[in-house]
Structure formats: C-alpha cells, structure tokens
Design a protein around this nucleic acid. Structure first.
Length: 114
DNA sequence: GGTTTGACCATAA
DNA sequence: CTTATGGCCAAAC
C-alpha cells in the first residue's frame, strides 16, 4: 500500500479508490469524489475512468448516485457494465438500476489531506 | 493561460 | 415519473 500520495494527478487517486472496491459491491461517483475530499469532483471520477479505459480498475463497480448505470449514449459499454455486475452477484434490473442500500459500498477516504 | 467539455449531483417545475 | 438549469472542478485543446 502507498502510505502517501503526493500529486499523481486526479486519475491515479480515482483509480486507487476504485481499485479498493470489494467484489460484489458498488459505489457512486459522488462517494468516490467525497472520499477524495471533494464531492464536487464526481464528474471527474467517471471522466478519469473513461480516460484510462479499462485496466486493473473495476470501473464497472462505479455507478451514479441514482443507483443506476450512467452512460452517454454508449449503451454498449453500459450493457457490459451491467453484465459484469451480474457476474459479481449484483442484482441489476433491465433498467440498469440496483439497490444502493444493499450493494452500495463506502470507499475508504484517502489518508492524504493537506 | 483562456475556452470547452464532461461515465455527475442537487434542486425546481 | 421526466425535463430543465446551475454549479462545480479538473483535464484536454
């Protein structure tokens, strides 16, 4: 684990938090943003994931505050995300929505605060 | 260093 | 339930 994170840019922070999401659990952009210290950066969370594409990051475990999968016309990736969640035991309906009260997970706040 | 954009969020109607 | 608007902040151009 990294005891300290200086300034790896925003993407690395998002990636670090998303990577900590346990199996069969989902979190929201706002939750990740809040864990980073600012709930306003919720937009950048998803944007950061898109910028890096897929990698070692379980981006499919990140959804919006409505408890549903968000995408901008790119239904292809949205369907992929839903399929991955179903594979993890997360009950996602055809609307792409799930119960945050059941599968919602709170990310660990970063130990970096200046 | 200003402008544009964006996988969002909250509120209002 | 949906649609519209404002805001917020960081990266890309």
């Amino acid at each position: 684990m990294s005891p300290r994170v200086v300034s790896p840019g925003f993407h690395a922070r998002v990636a670090a938090v998303v990577r900590e999401i346990p199996y069969g659990r989902v979190t929201t952009y706002g939750a990740v943003a809040t864990a980073l210290g600012s709930p306003r950066v919720a937009r950048h969370v998803g944007w950061a994931l898109a910028a890096m594409g897929d990698g070692e990051i379980p981006w499919h475990r990140v959804i919006n505050a409505r408890g549903a999968i968000s995408f901008k016309g790119d239904t292809g990736r949205a369907l992929d995300q839903r399929a991955r969640l179903l594979a993890e035991g997360v009950e996602v309906d055809l609307h792409g929505r799930l119960s945050l009260a059941r599968f919602g997970w709170v990310p660990t706040p970063t130990a970096d605060a200046s």
